[in-house]
Structures are given as structure tokens and as C-alpha cells.
């Protein structure tokens, strides 16, 4: 997806539909293979089936924050500065927060029968919970009122700060004593892969399927952000037009000026100062 793409676009929509369909087929295949085809694990039994979901969700979480980080860098870099990068960072972070929440919840569901507790202050779990809170904070920062460029700049800086926790989460199982197992595929310490056969293929499929789902969600969230920017601009235009109409001619008695509802909605836009002079009615 091009970050400069607008909220519409026929070809983009067709590609998106194919992407969504592929993601859906991949997820259905993962569920079928994960729940009915693959064998139970020698040690974990049927609980291993949760691992066709949980690591893939965590993987998408890393991708989402990685893209938010790169987009924020590209926004801050003067030569590539464009609001599209800010929208992409915001969209990717929101999707990332959903996947982080799911990483924590699915991990907890797996941890209860495996470790005997729903939650423990393990380094990996704790830093992941911190990551969740950090990016919730980032999303809150995006909502702070202000001029559009200023909001984008402060959001980009917040994204860079929040991203510091991402490598800490990933390497926490190697840096500190952790209940959580180290990476099953291509362990950075031993270089070994501890999953084989149908289990390995199902795991790989889950990674691909959820990455496609992420791309679909990101594209739609980006479109929504582009529409919100358009709406914000529209609200400003309407406020100006309304003032001009008031100065040029009074609407009929009892007649609600066209677009008044949108102007009213613009009052909720986090930039009331930009609505034009005399906007406070």
C-alpha cells in the first residue's frame, strides 16, 4: 500500500479484497490444521495447538510496531515528510495495540494450564504489558488537540520513544531468566529449530495468514485515517463557508443551514482554534 494513497481507489479496493480473502483462507486453514490435523505435543499435549495462534499474533505485533517506527522516522526526516507517514504510523500502531492485547490474552490462556497461573511478573510478560501501555499512550498522544503538523510531529517522537521497548521484549527471554521459552524457530543461541513436520508447516502458515490479516487491517485503518483528515479539512471549510453565508445572507427562519451538523461535529475535532474566526456559536 502506498502511504500516499487516498481514501478511495478502485484498484486498491480490488487488491484489498484479494488480500482479505487470502488472509481469511489462511486463517481458516490454520484453524483446521491446528485443531484437527496436527498431532498433540509429547510434553504439552493439546495445549500446543494454542501455539499456532499465539506466536503468530506476537509476530504481527512486532511488524506493526516496526512499521510505525519506520513511518515515524520517515515523517520526521525533512526530505520525506508527509502526513501520509503519520497516518500510516497511527494506523499500524492501533492494529499493533490490538495484536499486543491478544498476545497477552492468548499467552495468559496458554500459561494458566502450563504454568498454573494466569499471570506472572516474568520479564517477557512484564515488558510486553509495558509495550501495550506505551502504545496506548501513543494513541492517546495522537488525540491531543493541536495543529495537524504539530500533532504529527509529537506523535512521531512518541512512536520512537515507545519503540525502545520492542527489542527489549524480544530479547528479554535471552537477557534474563524467564519462564517463557526462547524462540522455537531458529533459536539465536543454539541456532536450532525445535518444530518439524506438519507442526512446522502449520506454524509457518499461521505466520503468513496473520501477516495478511494485518496488511488488510492496516490498509483499512489507513483509509479511515485519511477520511478523518478529509473530514477535518471539510469541517474547517464548512465553518468558513458558514461564516460567509451568515455575512452574505441570513437563512430562512427555522431552516437549518446545510452542513450544520458537520460543523457541529467539527466542534469535536481536536483543533477548535483552526475552525476560523467566530466559530464558537
Amino acid at each position: 500500500m502506498s502511504p500516499g494513497a487516498g481514501p478511495g481507489g478502485g484498484r486498491g479496493t480490488a487488491v484489498l479484497r484479494v488480500l482479505g480473502l487470502l488472509g481469511l483462507v489462511g486463517v481458516v486453514a490454520t484453524v483446521w490444521l491446528g485443531l484437527w490435523v496436527t498431532p498433540p505435543d509429547r510434553f504439552m499435549g493439546n495445549l500446543v495447538r494454542l501455539l499456532y495462534l499465539h506466536p503468530a499474533i506476537a509476530w504481527v505485533m512486532y511488524i506493526a510496531y516496526g512499521i510505525a517506527f519506520l513511518s515515524s522516522l520517515l515523517y520526521l526526516w525533512p526530505r520525506t515528510r508527509a502526513l501520509a507517514w503519520d497516518r500510516l504510523a497511527g494506523a499500524s500502531s492501533e492494529v499493533g495495540v490490538v495484536f499486543t492485547g491478544l498476545t497477552l490474552v492468548t499467552g495468559s490462556i496458554w500459561g494458566r494450564p502450563t504454568w498454573g497461573v494466569w499471570w506472572t511478573w516474568d520479564p517477557l510478560l512484564t515488558t510486553t504489558a509495558l509495550l501495550f501501555v506505551l502504545y496506548l499512550g501513543y494513541l492517546a498522544v495522537r488525540q491531543i488537540p493541536g495543529e495537524r503538523e504539530a500533532r504529527a510531529r509529537r506523535s512521531a517522537i512518541a512512536a520512537l520513544v515507545a519503540f525502545v521497548d520492542v527489542p527489549i521484549v524480544y530479547f528479554s527471554v535471552l537477557w534474563w531468566r524467564s519462564l517463557h521459552q526462547p524462540p522455537t524457530v531458529d533459536d539465536p543461541v543454539t541456532g536450532k529449530t525445535y518444530v518439524h513436520g506438519s507442526m512446522a508447516w502449520t506454524l509457518l502458515l499461521s505466520f503468513v495468514a496473520l501477516t495478511l490479516v494485518y496488511a488488510w487491517l492496516l490498509a483499512h485503518r489507513y483509509r479511515l485515517a485519511a477520511l478523518a483528515d478529509l473530514e477535518e479539512g471539510e469541517g474547517l471549510e464548512l465553518a468558513i463557508a458558514e461564516r460567509r453565508a451568515e455575512a452574505g445572507g441570513v437563512p430562512a427562519r427555522g431552516e437549518e443551514p446545510a452542513g450544520a451538523d458537520l460543523v457541529g461535529a467539527a466542534a469535536g475535532v481536536p483543533d477548535p482554534g483552526a475552525r476560523g474566526p467566530g466559530a464558537g456559536r
Partner: peptide, 11 residues
């Protein structure tokens, strides 16, 4: 067991 189903449904 219920945990596996719960994980898939929630996720």
C-alpha cells in the same frame, strides 16, 4: 480442553 478453544475464540 477448554483453554485451546477459548484461545482461538478470543483471538
Amino acid at each position: 480442553n477448554g483453554y485451546v478453544e477459548a484461545g482461538y475464540i478470543v483471538g
